[in-house]
């Protein structure tokens, strides 16, 4: 049963991630983490007739691969927690509708991988389920047309902007297995520090990450030195810098331990992604490939994974609202 200390849930049974997979697009396959991905699609449309269908295909493939790697048929999974960036989470629903797994749709913007994986782990630890799946996706082209401009529109991106990852990640969580294990979960509060610029999402989300990380350290009485890696989702360059400053004020220094999925998946300069990467698929594909693999190989043993999400829509941005953000944290060990 989960035990609550402050806002953090300790999971004494340590649910195990038994299978994980990351499926990505062409640009991600040209980045520094290419060798770790399960499948790289050379065609951005993934052979589908629309970008939305392409995104659904990514998450469908990711879940199929994760199930395979955990040696489970879909029927063995008790609950599926998943979501994405598209309106009404259609990327997920249309991609996973044929799996016949009881489905809990979730929206956490780019924090979705942490949110769904946390739910899966809590369900398993509480005994409500034995096997759960967590999945999420994003697609550069479907996100662009929903949140920004048509692809062929000739415009310039500000240096603070981030590039939405085309990719999906999925993980299977079970009550026993070879690890990595999910030892603790901190579900974050919504934090709004008044940032209105939807082209500077790292800045909007950094306070949420700082709040959740600080809460976790206080609840567990630990410090950055106790961990091998503190991995944020998609704060990218500016957001990461701001996170150091915010936590610095709280006398927490994570600089030496920190990395950000948004800085890892692309070569920022060569691949022209300005401040870095973003999207649900950013944290999901980095976690469900490189990071879990490092844990399995014991080159990482105790990490914090904290994915952040900016909870705005195009409507709220046009109405001049500031951006509320959220960050969820998992302590993953081996």
């Amino acid at each position: 049963m989960p035990q609550r200390t402050g806002h953090t849930l300790m999971l004494p049974s340590k649910p195990s991630v038994t299978g994980y997979a990351a499926v990505v697009g062409k640009k991600e396959g040209e980045g520094p983490l290419a060798q770790w991905f399960d499948k790289i699609n050379e065609d951005t449309t993934v052979g589908e007739s629309s970008w939305e269908k392409a995104e659904s295909a990514l998450v469908r493939d990711a879940l199929a691969l994760a199930l395979d790697k955990s040696n489970n048929p879909p029927s063995a999974i008790d609950y599926l927690f998943a979501g994405d960036l598209l309106n009404q989470c259609t990327g997920t629903a249309f991609g996973l509708r044929d799996y016949n797994i009881p489905y809990v749709g979730m929206y956490g913007a780019c924090s979705t991988m942490a949110l769904t994986l946390a739910q899966a782990a809590i369900y398993v630890d509480s005994g409500a389920a034995q096997k759960c799946a967590a999945a999420t996706s994003s697609h550069f082209c479907s996100a662009e047309r929903q949140f920004r401009q048509p692809l062929e529109y000739g415009g310039q991106r500000p240096p603070t902007s981030q590039w939405t990852v085309t990719g999906a990640g999925a993980a299977i969580v079970e009550n026993a297995g070879p690890g990595p294990y999910i030892s603790a979960v901190t579900l974050g509060k919504m934090v709004d520090y008044g940032i209105k610029d939807a082209n500077n999402m790292g800045a909007a989300m950094a306070p949420a990450a700082a709040d959740t990380i600080k809460t976790y350290f206080e609840d567990t009485n630990t410090s950055p030195n106790d961990y091998d890696l503190i991995l944020t989702g998609d704060l990218a360059r500016i957001g990461s810098d701001l996170l150091y400053e915010l936590l610095g004020r709280e006398n927490i220094n994570i600089r030496d331990k920190h990395n950000d999925c948004g800085l890892m998946i692309f070569d920022l300069k060569k691949q022209k992604v300005n401040a870095g990467a973003s999207g649900c698929g950013c944290a999901a594909t980095v976690l469900c490939s490189y990071v879990f693999e490092q844990l399995r190989q014991r080159s990482l043993r105790n990490i914090l994974f904290c994915a952040t999400g900016a909870l705005m829509s195009t409507t709220t941005s046009q109405q001049g609202e500031s951006i509320p953000s959220v960050a969820h944290l998992l302590n993953i060990t081996i």
Partner: peptide, 19 residues
């Protein structure tokens, strides 16, 4: 958290590179 919204807004302006 210790940092106020006003302080943060100034910090964001400082850290965000202009075009």
């Amino acid at each position: 958290m210790q940092m106020t919204k006003q302080e943060y807004s100034k910090l964001v302006d400082k850290k965000s590179p202009p075009s």
